[in-house]
């Protein structure tokens, strides 16, 4: 009596996009893994300078060489992952915690709340992370927390929009009417019916915002507006390498390439997840 439904698994492995999902997952695991590993173990201590070892080329001892202060580059990258991922993750969390309820509220109430949210969107989109970071730094000074706020504020309307759009696309669906007929209140319906059905949208957006957060944090750190020493970050490493670019280009190349790979990983993961979770985007006519 049941219709024969092709299992999700089969279509997953047949999809040509599984390549990006696979690659994205692998990169993400490696990047996140090394970041976590650096809490417990590092090849070298990077908090002390060792001028005798400065600007060493890659060797069996220092796999990626050392910087102008004699610090092991690989260890710097590993510990830098903590800062970059940390700022990015907290900024995403900040954006989600504020943005999703706001978006759901706007979708549920429409009218005035909706208009208010739209105006708030306009306002926040006028302040890209660098500008809010400049403002916050100018008045409160630079730091990791201020970077998180500067980047996170921009995430709020992004998540609000995704949540609102997702909720509105469900708005006409009859199961929501049925839930109201069952006497359920708006909050209960949101948790039982709306959130589970827009969760995949939010997860995909989170990976995208995470990669944008990493880029933004790198930019802020590069300008010196990001997390301050002794915190190590990839953007800061680039800043320090800039003056040496003509005779030690590897110092700029390696952290930059690390950023590219990390961001690429999260983007690929996001793309792969979207194709996996949203069947609408899989192939079709013409």
């Amino acid at each position: 009596m049941m219709k024969n439904v092709p299992s999700e698994k089969a279509s997953f492995f047949n999809s040509r996009y599984s390549a990006s999902l696979l690659l994205g997952t692998v990169i993400t695991i490696v990047v996140v893994g090394t970041g976590v590993l650096s809490f417990f173990w590092l090849p070298f201590n990077v908090s002390s300078l060792n001028v005798a070892q400065r600007l060493q080329p890659a060797s069996a001892q220092h796999w990626l060489g050392t910087d102008q202060y004699g610090r092991d580059l690989l260890s710097m990258l590993m510990i830098g992952a903590q800062t970059s991922l940390g700022v990015g993750l907290f900024a995403v969390g900040f954006g989600m915690l504020l943005g999703v309820p706001l978006g759901l509220l706007a979708a549920a109430r429409r009218g005035f709340v909706d208009q208010l949210l739209m105006r708030f969107n306009d306002l926040v989109f006028a302040f890209p992370a660098v500008l809010s970071a400049i403002l916050i730094t100018a008045s409160l000074g630079p730091g990791a927390l201020n970077s998180i706020i500067a980047i996170g504020i921009f995430n709020v309307p992004v998540f609000a929009r995704v949540a609102r759009g997702g909720a509105l696309s469900l708005a006409g669906r009859e199961f929501l009417l049925a839930a109201r007929l069952a006497g359920k209140g708006a909050l209960r319906i949101t948790f039982e019916h709306v959130l589970p059905n827009i969760a995949s949208l939010l997860i995909v957006q989170a990976t995208i915002q995470l990669s944008m957060g990493i880029l933004a944090e790198a930019g802020l750190s590069y300008l010196g507006l990001g997390p301050q020493p002794p915190l190590v970050s990839w953007g800061r490493m680039l800043n320090e390498a800039q003056t040496l670019v003509s005779f030690a280009p590897q110092l700029a190349l390696i952290p930059g390439a690390t950023i590219v790979v990390a961001v690429l990983g999260f983007n690929l993961l996001g793309d792969g997840l979207r194709d996996l979770l949203d069947p609408k985007l899989r192939g079709g006519p013409r």
Binding site: A218, G219, L238, Q242, P249, A252, G256, V260, V263, L264
Partner: peptide, 22 residues
Amino acid sequence: LQVGVALPNFWLALLLIYVFSI
């Protein structure tokens, strides 16, 4: 395009300086 999206522009700037200027 995927790589392009992941490029930090200031790092790209450093690369461009290295190649075209230095």
